[in-house]
Amino acid sequence: MSRRVPIESQRIDAPLTSTATFLVLSINDSADAVKTVRSALAGISGLTKNVAIRDLNASFACTVGIGSQVWDRLTSLQRPEELHSFPEIKGKTHTAVSTPGDLLFHIRSERRDLNFEFERQLMEQLDGSVKVIDETIGFRYFDVRDLLGFVDGTANPVGAAINDSILVTESDDAHGIGGSYVVIQKYLHDLKGWKSLTTEQQESIIGRTKSDNMELDDAPADKQKSHKTLSTIVDEDGNEHDILRDNMPFGSPSAGEFGTYFIGYTKKLWVLEKMLLRMFVGEPPGLHDKILDYSRAVTGTTFFVPSATVLDALDSD
């Protein structure tokens, strides 16, 4: 009787740190490029250990995601059931744009220099086989607030509920065991417009108080709903589905750039897509999430985060 190889997941549940690098790459169109990328991804666990050992208290971690367009080129594995490119979501007023990306590296730790060193060694190993689509450096802002001034990530699952919300099980999809879907979006904020609102108006849009992060009551079913309500997904049986957000602020005051890098992990991609549909189209349709009047999505990409076991074996495909 053959023994089933245990599946080890990537560090999707790594704790929120003080700094992160979000690196999105495309793979060059050649067999040599794919071969180089496979080798680099198979060595991610070793590279992570090499950097993390420099400070074991820095909570260093890197999560790797693979995009739909490159999955079949990069692996010989059957595709995860829900994996597809990020769909553009066009509401009456705002659009969730769809942008390219083959690979995502979510690099984070308590030390910016560790993130830098990991990225330096990674790009050296990738050796010209990729093109940088986007690199964004995120940072923790005060007591885990976004640049709009509100606490971010309050609805995240905790404890055992984290893995239950983000890791694909055999009963979910036998081809994605131990993996997770991840969606990324960069939002640029109109801080001048946001600051023109009263605190009460801001709280009404977010659905929480600004100073102490207390939930406000939901609006009636046919009225304008808050961001908190629109981003809460409940299925037909009344079950609430959580996602794990590792959002971070980014920006440059001298350049007038202020933003939030949204990154959400989930075991069921439809949950995240329904959340975005409710935000951009509205629930009911036409009543979009008012936070979008002050936060514009400039990217949108979907990836699947395979298990560490799958990554380690990519070079043998």
Results as ranks from 00 to 15, higher is better:
Leu122Met: 03
Glu236Leu: 11
Leu272Trp: 04
Ile12Glu: 08
Ser76Gly: 08
Glu203Cys: 13
Glu110Val: 04
Ser68Ala: 14
Val305Cys: 06
Asp113Phe: 07
Met279Val: 03
Glu117Lys: 12
Leu188Pro: 00
Leu41Lys: 06
Gln224Gly: 03
Ser231Met: 12
Gly153Ala: 02
Asp32Phe: 09
Ser45Pro: 09
Gly101Cys: 04
Pro284Met: 12
Gln202Leu: 00
Gln10Gly: 11
Arg11Gly: 04
Met123Asn: 10
His288Tyr: 10
Val132Gly: 05
Leu216Tyr: 02
Gly238Trp: 09
Leu16Ala: 11
Val168Trp: 05
Phe150Asp: 01
Asp102Phe: 00
Ile166Leu: 12
Arg296His: 10
Ile233Pro: 05
Thr95Met: 10
Gly264Ile: 05
Ala58Pro: 04
Leu272Cys: 00
Ala42Trp: 06
Asp317Pro: 03
Gln10Thr: 10
His84Lys: 10
Arg140Ala: 10
Leu314His: 05
Arg208Gly: 00
Tyr187Gly: 01
Trp71Cys: 02
Asp143Val: 07
Glu117Val: 10
Gly128Pro: 10
Asp134Lys: 13
Phe250Gln: 07
Thr198Trp: 00
Asn57Lys: 11
Asp237Met: 13
Phe262Met: 14
Met275Lys: 08
Val97Phe: 00
Thr232Tyr: 11
Asp212Asn: 15
His175Asn: 15
Ile53Asn: 13
Thr260Pro: 01
Leu167Asn: 00
Asp127Gln: 13
Ala313Leu: 11
Lys290Phe: 02
Ser165Glu: 09
Gly256Ala: 06
Val132Trp: 00
Lys92Asp: 13
Leu25His: 05
Gly153Asn: 10
Arg278Glu: 03
Asp173Tyr: 07
Asp235Tyr: 12
Arg108His: 11
Lys210Tyr: 02
Leu188Asp: 09
Leu104Lys: 06
Arg79Thr: 03
Ser211His: 07
Leu167Phe: 05
Pro220Thr: 08
Val5Gln: 15
Phe142Glu: 01
Glu203Thr: 03
Pro6Lys: 07
Ser30Ala: 08
Ser316His: 01
Ala42Ser: 15
His175Leu: 15
Asp29Glu: 15
Asp317Ser: 08
Glu257Ser: 14
